[in-house]
Structure formats: C-alpha cells, structure tokens
Amino acid sequence: LETFPLDVLVNTAAEDLPRGVDPSRKENYLSDEDFKAVFGMTRSAFANLPLWKQQNLKKEKGLF
C-alpha cells in the first residue's frame, strides 16, 4: 500500500485525496512512523480498539 505524508491526508476532502486513497481509511496510508506519531500507538494496538474509539481518534486527528 502506498503511503502519503500526513499533511496530504489530514483534513482533506475525499475529492482532494491522491488517486486510490480510500477516504474512510486514511490512516492506512500513513507510514508506520507517522501513524505512531499521530495516534501514539502501533497499528495493531489501534486495530484492537473498539470501532467507536478508532473513529473518535480519527476525528480528533483530522483523518475521518
């Protein structure tokens, strides 16, 4: 999966995202380093959170 810089994904409308980016899964296009910096946890820890908590975190970080 291709990764993009944080500033390309945060608070970006679906139509302005790079081609192929799923707007409902912007976090998947962050590098592992950016993911950890944004969410303060690994991808696996994030995946283990309840869906509502994942969505709330994504909203807080501008990735929803």
Rank of each mutant, 00 (worst) to 15 (best):
L51N: 09
G62K: 06
K58N: 01
K61W: 06
S44E: 14
E15I: 11
T3R: 10
L9H: 02
P5I: 03
A37H: 11
G40P: 00
Q55M: 14
R25Q: 10
A47L: 12
K53I: 13
D16V: 06
P23K: 07
V8Q: 11
A47D: 09
K59S: 09
G40Y: 05
A45R: 10
L57G: 00
A47C: 09
P18A: 03
A45F: 10
V38D: 00
E15Q: 12
W52R: 08
G62S: 04
Q55C: 14
E33V: 11
T3Y: 15
A14R: 10
M41S: 01
N56L: 12
L30C: 03
V21P: 03
P5S: 07
T42G: 10
R25V: 08
T3W: 12
L57C: 05
V21S: 03
K36P: 02
L57T: 03
T12A: 11
P23S: 07
L9I: 05
P18M: 03
L1N: 13
K26I: 15
D34T: 07
K36M: 15
N48Q: 13
E27F: 02
S31R: 07
A14M: 10
T42R: 05
W52V: 09
S31C: 07
E60A: 12
Q54W: 00
N56R: 13
Q54E: 00
L63Q: 02
V38M: 06
D16L: 10
E27N: 01
K26A: 06
D34C: 06
Y29V: 02
F64Y: 15
L63N: 03
F46M: 01
N28P: 02
V38S: 05
F64S: 15
P23A: 11
P5E: 06
A14H: 11
R19K: 15
Q54S: 02
F39E: 00
L30T: 01
F35R: 00
K53F: 13
P23M: 06
A37Y: 12
V38E: 03
K36L: 15
E2V: 15
F35S: 00
N28L: 14
A14K: 11
P5N: 04
L63Y: 05
A45V: 12
R25T: 07
E2A: 13
F39D: 00
L6M: 09
K26F: 05
E2Q: 14
K26L: 15
P50T: 06
L17Y: 06
R43K: 11
T3P: 06
A13Q: 11
N56Q: 14
F39S: 00
R43M: 05
S44Y: 14
F46P: 00
F35H: 00
V21G: 03
M41P: 00
V8N: 05
G62P: 01
T42Q: 07
L30Q: 01
K58T: 02
D16E: 12
F4N: 02
V38K: 01
Q55F: 10
P50V: 04
K61A: 15
L9N: 02
K26V: 15
L49I: 06
Q55L: 15
P23I: 08
E33N: 10
A14S: 11
F39Y: 01
G40C: 11
P5K: 03
V10E: 05
L17K: 02
V21T: 04
V38W: 04
F39T: 01
R19T: 15
N56Y: 13
R19G: 12
D16I: 06
F39P: 00
P5D: 07
G40H: 11
G20C: 10
